[in-house]
């Protein structure tokens, strides 16, 4: 049995001045190489859960903590946000909110310089990022002149060059047009495959998310109500009370009274329908 890289034990969190707990009694193990989709309606605790993964909670937010979180074996209260951030990178939904520089190149270099890496290493990583994220054409451009999809690509690149083990993304495509959305999910798929990066993605667009996720965590009313593989999630989902917009092919198959193995990818659905 592998050891989990992140582990929550009976964890609860209440923000300062809030009346209720934003997360209640969370027990969760995340393993190396997991590709996890975090789903659920707004205000149920998705973002709060993500903030606990690199120490943003409890170090940047005040509140009451119960139980514990261990990140790479270290108790969250014993470490620091700097330490955890080296292992767990974080990408926000609005790429503009994390840009600090006036050119794409500087943006990518910002994190590396802060890690105090030797110049040679910085050069190697920059070169890698340019190839991996296809940034060649706009290195000297300011990030705000790029399209939404390109901007989010730069934001992800600037986190991934720091070589974290885990990449956390909070609704990475909500600000993007459909083209930009597909672009980001393709990049993520590639990263998971080539770099063996552990991905944890909160997302409303399940049609895209389910193309890459291998495990789903469903948060509802501040608790984890489902944690398991994608197929069982799609099969057991409450389609009567559509809290989350499931892929349309899944909705149709459920209504056609397919009880088990409901498809969630287009190709799969076309195949199954013709049978």
């Amino acid at each position: 049995m592998k050891n989990p890289i992140i582990e929550f034990k009976n964890f609860s969190w209440k923000y300062e001045n809030a009346q209720d707990f934003s997360l209640k009694n969370i027990n969760l193990k995340i393993f190396e190489g997991d590709i996890i989709g975090v789903v659920g309606a707004n205000e149920q605790g998705k973002t709060t859960l993500l903030r606990c993964l690199n120490g943003l909670i409890p170090f940047n937010w005040r509140g009451t903590l119960k139980g514990g979180v261990r990140i790479f074996g270290k108790d969250i209260l014993q470490g620091s946000i700097e330490e955890f951030s080296k292992k767990v990178g974080f990408v926000f939904s609005d790429p503009d909110s994390q840009f600090t520089s006036t050119s794409v190149e500087e943006e990518i270099l910002f994190g590396l310089e802060n890690l105090n890496l030797p110049i040679d290493e910085i050069k190697t990583r920059l070169k890698w990022a340019i190839e991996e994220f296809e940034l060649e054409g706009f290195l000297s451009k300011p990030p705000y002149e790029l399209s939404g999809g390109q901007r989010q690509r730069v934001a992800i690149a600037s986190v991934v060059v720091m070589k974290p083990y885990v990449l956390v993304l909070d609704e990475p495509t909500s600000m993007l047009d459909p083209d930009g959305k597909s672009e980001i999910f393709e990049i993520l798929k590639k990263l998971a495959g080539e770099e063996n990066l552990t991905l944890i993605i909160a997302e409303h667009n399940l049609t895209e998310l389910l193309k890459i996720a291998e495990r789903i965590i469903h948060i509802d009313k501040n608790e984890i109500v489902y944690d398991g593989d994608v197929q069982r999630f799609v099969d057991e989902f409450d389609y009567e009370n559509l809290q989350i917009y499931m892929p349309e092919v899944s909705q149709v198959f459920w209504h056609l009274k397919k009880q088990k193995n409901i498809p969630f990818l287009l190709e799969d659905a076309v195949g199954k329908f013709q049978k």
Partner: peptide, 25 residues
């Protein structure tokens, strides 16, 4: 621009353009 998934699906399996799951069903 990509049409809704159900529209692509209905075109592929029934050769019809349906806009929503309800219409499809």
């Amino acid at each position: 621009v990509k049409p809704p998934q159900i529209t692509i699906f209905s075109r592929r399996v029934l050769n019809k353009t349906f806009l929503t799951c309800e219409e499809f069903l």
